[in-house]
Nucleic acid binder design. Structure first.
Lengths: 250, 250
DNA sequence: CATAATCGCGTACGACGTACCCAGTGGAGG
DNA sequence: CCTCCACTGGGTACGTCGTACGCGATTATG
């Protein structure tokens, strides 16, 4: 009550002033967690396993991080650091948002297990903040801030929603320890049952089409993204107009 | 290996032919799980807790469900059953999709904890299939099936992405056992620190604006949804045209 | 009526996050 | 210089989780 009771993980100093020098570091621990999660999934990144990865005892991690949840918050921000938004806003909002969306998707595909960490309250980590500044900066010159938030919700909703679907199948497979062919073997009877019942014509159509989809996932994503950006463009006050009746930045 | 080895939860019959009559049922167990999750969050719905809720022993549940993961799959489909898509497709695709989106959001708000169950491989549950038929049926007359999938990805991406954000803050709060004011108390120093640093002008703008947002979350959602539907409309072959050059349903 | 399948469920195991404790260490105050 | 004590790493232990296994009781089928 009266003592420290730290508050936000980003406000808790990594190392106090006094005492012996710490052997490890938050960055090292976070990196180990990412490495394990990449290789074996996030649920394999237990405190004991992470500690072992860096050659520490399990309880030593708690000298650096107050709980596993806080460690995951660190990991999440570390992942956001992989998203390259250097030079944004560039003045070309469409190019900026395209790059951002592409970077986010690439990061998710590199670390599919973030699909399993439910987006939490804003963590206020440095990388998250950098993203906010750079990416929302792209539209900041064109719309007021609440409009900007609304449009970004559409964009990030689309990006995260679609890539989550791409990624969580793979995650689910790995988690269940099934190979893709094993999963198909298990699901096929059910699919066949549904198709043969004749009650699900659209589902059947999807199954039939699945064999010969002519667009790769990359192309599908880019195609949908273009549409979403068109949608955002339509909501922007036309830059070609002589004057905007709703000046965004007074 | 040689014996049953059931495959998909929906293909495993609830009750075999022989033996004594079961005391409970999948539906009863699923309902109990939903009840507990609504009241105390999904992580409180442990096997022991669910069993206690219906007055059974912990291990009895495994007579009905092969694992907790499968039970969650049952729960997920049960939630999809709450989404009312009766009478779809009605012929007015925009009305259908609006209703669907609104229903999905309402369901998420009733059961915020579904944000924590990562969307898995298609479970092929009856309610999920009903949704596919009804909702994708809305556009089926207008576009080929792969286009339909792409457009639905945009819609569901937006809906789930935005409502996930609405909901996961509340979930995170409950999970951490903090009240909203406690959370604010913990975060405020960090927010203040960031604002005062002067390095985050857009973040600062958001914080400032937060006090007087003039649109309710409902209105924000509807507003964004209209934009997404406009975006879908733009991708549809114009119904007013004399003939479509790409006949969707041969 | 005998048989075997299925019932509910008690016990037990190996994992998890982490509270608590203790011995060792090294910078600050004398 | 020595002394102190805030800090270090980490071992042990607790409560909880999902669930494997096996028991006696029950009941549809031969």
């Amino acid at each position: 009550m009266s003592d420290a009771e730290y508050v936000n993980i980003w406000m808790r100093p990594e190392r106090p002033a006094r005492g012996p020098k710490p052997t490890y570091s938050r960055a090292q621990i976070t990196e180990a967690a990412v490495r394990i999660a990449d290789a074996e999934g996030l649920e394999a990144a237990t405190m004991r396993r992470i500690a072992a990865e860096i050659g520490a005892g399990a309880m030593s991690l708690y000298r650096y991080v107050p709980s596993r949840d806080d460690l995951i918050a660190l990991v999440a921000d570390r992942l956001m650091g992989e998203i390259d938004v250097e030079g944004m806003p560039s003045g070309d909002w469409r190019a900026d948002l395209t790059r951002y969306a592409t970077e986010v998707r690439a990061m998710w595909l590199r670390h599919p297990w973030i699909a399993t960490v439910h987006r939490s309250l804003p963590g206020f980590g440095p990388n998250q903040l950098r993203l906010i500044e750079r990416v929302m900066g792209a539209l900041d010159a064109h719309v007021p801030i609440d409009e900007n938030l609304g449009l970004m919700a559409i964009l990030t909703g689309y990006v995260e929603g679609t890539v989550r679907e791409e990624v969580s199948s793979a995650e689910e497979l790995r988690r269940s320890g099934l190979s893709e062919s094993e999963w198909m073997a298990r699901s096929h009877p059910r699919i066949q049952q549904l198709v043969e019942s004749g009650e699900y014509p659209i589902f059947t159509k999807i199954v039939m089409e699945a064999g010969r989809l002519h667009l790769s996932r990359d192309e599908q994503f880019r195609h949908g993204l273009e549409r979403v950006l068109d949608c955002i463009a339509a909501a922007l006050p036309s830059a070609t107009g002589p004057e905007s009746e709703n000046p965004p930045n007074p």
